[in-house]
Amino acid sequence: MEFEFRETLLYVENLSVVYDDVTIIKDLSLIEKNVVRSKYENTGQVIAVVGRSGRGKSTFFKALTGLVHPNSGKILIKDFESSELNAAKPVKEGDIGFVDQKYTLFRHKTVSQTLKFALRKTTLTAQEQDSKIEKYIKDWGLETCKDKYPNELSGGQRQRTAIIEQLFSSDKLIVLDEPFSGLDIGNIEEVKKSFELLSATHDHNTVIFSTHDIELAVELAQSIYVIGYPTVSGKKQTYGSIVAKYDLREMGICWKDKSEEHDKLYKEIALQMMNS
């Protein structure tokens, strides 16, 4: 499958977060670029973050979305408002969307009202906002519930609304914390559809999600990061960092049906997690 790496969308360098003199994550670095596939109008990026509990995944996500300030290091994202190819800006709260496991929405706003509120800071006219909302509601299969409140929605409908809300307010990058946790098979398929819709909407759309399900990570992601306790000079540390990265595009197994190569990668990641 032919593809090309282009401009950088997310750049993290030597990120460290300390709580009450306890180092949670340290020296965490990654680079994710826009990927363009030949013969495909939009590709989008799907990035999985896996690791054992307590290794710092949630702290990393909070730093990534500007909810906590790192003690050192930097996080840069593409400046989508600039015409320069590699224009970047430091991340601040609201730049990267965040969807938690509960798909938190305004209790007293309908789906349409929630999305309208998410567009309040844009430069779009009222008519342009309405057109954008109508398009997303149609494309994301929410036409029958646009006037419903959160307590009237299914889990999948709430999640899709939450994702669109975050896309509207933060643009192209979105983080989902354990989106598959506790879901039945039907709702897992709904989440997968949301990922497909995000990727097909714009080639800059970048989904970063955490999961304990390595099989789902291998199935859905183009790149997978393992966060664990690194071994430095023969000694295992007690802070989280990236201990391994797997780029399924470069490995030649991305965008393909499940194979022996996928099973081999699954086992390798499981072993990496177990040892870190």
Results as ranks from 00 to 15, higher is better:
128 E>D: 11
222 Q>V: 00
268 E>N: 03
153 L>N: 06
69 H>L: 07
143 E>D: 14
104 T>F: 05
105 L>A: 09
272 Q>V: 05
59 T>L: 07
269 I>K: 00
200 A>D: 14
23 T>Y: 01
67 L>V: 09
6 R>C: 05
147 D>M: 11
42 N>I: 06
268 E>F: 01
191 V>L: 10
192 K>G: 14
249 R>G: 04
26 K>N: 15
93 E>A: 12
115 L>A: 11
190 E>M: 15
198 L>N: 13
136 Y>V: 07
226 V>E: 02
40 Y>Q: 15
93 E>D: 00
160 R>P: 14
109 K>H: 13
160 R>D: 14
225 Y>M: 05
185 I>C: 06
218 V>T: 02
132 K>E: 13
233 S>L: 14
161 T>L: 05
135 K>A: 09
75 I>T: 09
28 L>H: 07
268 E>L: 02
206 T>N: 04
79 D>K: 02
218 V>P: 01
53 S>R: 01
45 Q>H: 07
247 D>L: 11
113 Q>V: 00
119 L>T: 08
161 T>G: 04
251 M>T: 03
113 Q>K: 12
131 S>L: 14
48 A>K: 02
223 S>T: 15
128 E>H: 04
25 I>R: 05
179 P>M: 10
151 N>S: 10
116 K>Q: 14
195 F>R: 10
173 L>Q: 08
162 A>M: 13
230 P>D: 12
197 L>W: 12
69 H>W: 00
73 G>Y: 06
119 L>N: 08
166 Q>D: 08
84 E>N: 08
75 I>D: 05
122 T>I: 02
87 A>L: 03
237 Q>D: 03
10 L>Y: 08
217 A>Q: 01
42 N>M: 05
151 N>V: 06
35 V>R: 05
17 V>S: 00
237 Q>N: 02
85 L>R: 11
1 M>N: 14
82 S>Y: 03
259 S>C: 08
158 R>P: 09
228 G>T: 04
271 L>W: 01
183 L>T: 04
192 K>T: 14
204 H>F: 11
97 G>H: 12
188 I>V: 15
80 F>Y: 13
145 C>M: 07
255 W>E: 15
12 V>S: 12
229 Y>K: 15
27 D>R: 06
155 G>Q: 11
274 M>R: 06
261 E>I: 00
126 A>L: 02
